[in-house]
């Protein structure tokens, strides 16, 4: 197996050009980062804690805006998006946040269904999809549990399920296996791989070597806010 090569710019789904992000007072989280992500690509974004992984994902899901530089999605400058167009765009990006962002009083089912409800999906379809995801992620018995009553590992999987619910064209997962044991990790990675095979573009930020070492996908590494491509050496020759 060889690693995927960077796609030519004109087929890129996401094009990040010289993006710098500084937080007040003068914390430079990203330093002139450039990255092109092709349609249907799966990318691992690695780096130690504090390297800027979360920041980069936040820029891609409109939670933060770059201090300098340009981000294009489908050839459109995302800083120009607002109002309805922005809302629609968000419906097409599934995000599994590092801090989960679940509704603590609502059940597992309600939390996942919400992502589909905002798109006015058919209730039957919603139910079917949520049940399928819960089965995939080993949460079927927690369906009616309020998320505040779940362990962190379970909450993490709920947030992943919610990100995948709509089968969005782009999924951003921030440390998706950070709280998971190996068994749960492989459930999650199986789900991502299946979606990737169906054509979903997936960006996974992680410092967990175990999940990218064996994969054939592209890996980019952040270090002190600077990005560099890793050409992976295959050990299992």
């Amino acid at each position: 197996m060889t690693s995927d090569t960077a796609p030519p710019i004109d087929t890129a789904l996401i094009d990040i050009v010289k993006v710098t992000k500084t937080y007040p007072p003068d914390i430079m989280a990203l330093d002139e980062v450039s990255l092109a992500v092709g349609h249907g690509e799966m990318i691992f974004l690695t780096g130690v804690s504090g390297a800027g992984k979360t920041t980069l994902l936040k820029l891609l899901c409109f939670l933060e805006s770059p201090t300098m530089g340009l981000i294009e999605m489908d050839k459109k400058d995302i800083s120009k998006l607002s109002g309805h167009a922005l809302q629609k765009m968000r419906q097409h990006i599934g995000v599994a946040y590092q801090d989960f962002r679940l509704l603590s009083k609502q059940t597992v089912y309600q939390n996942i269904a919400l992502a589909m409800e905002v798109r006015y999906e058919n209730p039957k379809k919603i139910k079917q999809r949520v049940l399928e995801l819960l089965a995939n992620l080993g949460l079927a018995d927690k369906i009616h549990t309020p998320t505040s009553k779940l362990s962190r590992g379970e909450q993490q999987r709920v947030s992943i399920a919610r990100a995948c619910a709509n089968k969005p064209p782009l999924i951003l997962a921030d440390e998706p296996t950070g709280n998971l044991d190996p068994a749960a990790t492989s459930l999650v990675m199986d789900l991502f791989n299946r979606l990737h095979e169906e054509g979903t573009t997936i960006i996974i930020a992680t410092h967990d070597q175990a999940i990218w070492q064996k994969s054939s996908h592209r890996i980019v590494n952040l270090e002190n806010g600077k990005l560099q491509e890793i050409i992976k050496v295959n050990f299992d020759l």
């Binding site: 809302q87 968000r90 419906q91 990006i93 946040y97 962002r101 509704l103 603590s104």
Partner: peptide, 16 residues
């Protein structure tokens, strides 16, 4: 508030 914020992240429209 919390719910509205999450709805926003999920791309809920004004109409919703």
């Amino acid at each position: 508030q919390e719910e509205l914020e999450i709805l926003r992240f999920l791309g809920a429209t004004d109409r919703y």
